[in-house]
Amino acid sequence: MPAIWSFDAPAPGQALSPAAVSALLDCASAPPSAARLLRAIDTVVPVEYLSLVNFRRDTPELIEGSSRHPHEGHGRDVVAECFAIYRRSYWRADAVMRLADRVSQRPAREVAVLHCRADELPVAGWRNEIYKRERLTERFTLLHAPARGAVQAIHLYRDERQGLFRPDEIQRLLGLAPLLRQAHQAALNAEGVAADREAQVALSRQRLARLVPALSPREAEVVARIAHGLSADGIAAELDVAPSTVVTLRKRAYAKLAEAGLPADRLRLARWLG
């Protein structure tokens, strides 16, 4: 039988290495990334594959996958291939579906964990077409609800090279689970903030094009981002140009704004367009 745990705080006595803390902070500071999550987990317990899955209308949808050895697949996306088989034939038999339904009704701070070996899967085709074909030994799943009714899962897979999780590795993963949930939640929030800011920048850019047609498209891009708090380095990274180019575009844009009698400095632009 699969083992299931549910908790909302790290187990007492669990200490993370500086590398693990750094990797978790990296996960939390940017929109969700399967590769970043895999790197964070790998500092605690090695796993071969990680998949991020969303449950929409009780149906699993793959968000992104990552591999510890991406170049060994010879161009194959193993996570996507296996998920396609799972989604076509086996997801209804997965105990994770019942757990996801339970988690969807629980507070957002809870995390539920399910551990299942390949030989515990209830359907032979599922074992053969995915686990046996890819030499996977087991799956360790963390589920949480970022919002009521919305559930996301982080699936971790071991293969024959790594063998089964040892009891001490299971304990380390259980200790990591609430912290990983917090990092993933922060990443989801960062994604929402980034999407919201991009929408605001687009509206400001449209307003500038309408009110200050003398601005070039690139100058408008820079001014809109200045109004929403980005530094020259941040704007350079988003537009894929040198910071010196941003400074030049800013200088030209400010001259045109001043000539039109409009705000031509960061603070006034933030009040006008922000």
Rank of each mutant, 00 (worst) to 15 (best):
P2H: 12
W5A: 15
D8W: 11
A9G: 01
P10W: 08
L16R: 06
S17F: 04
L25E: 12
A28R: 14
L38T: 04
V47M: 15
L50G: 01
T59Y: 07
I63A: 00
G65C: 02
H69A: 05
E81Q: 15
C82I: 01
A84K: 14
W91S: 01
R102S: 12
V103R: 00
Q105Y: 01
R106M: 15
A108T: 15
V111P: 11
A112N: 09
G125V: 04
G125R: 03
K132H: 12
T137Q: 13
E138D: 13
F140V: 04
L142T: 07
P146E: 09
P146L: 11
A150Q: 15
V151N: 09
A153L: 03
Y157K: 01
F165K: 03
R166S: 14
E169I: 08
R172E: 11
R172A: 15
L176I: 10
L176C: 13
P178D: 10
Q182H: 11
Q182D: 13
A183H: 07
H184K: 04
L188Q: 15
V193S: 07
A194G: 12
A195E: 05
A195F: 03
D196I: 05
A199C: 03
Q200K: 11
R207V: 05
L211M: 09
L215W: 05
R218D: 09
A224Y: 06
G234W: 12
L239C: 05
P243V: 13
R250F: 01
K251W: 03
A253K: 10
Y254H: 14
P263S: 07
L267W: 07
L269P: 06
L269N: 08
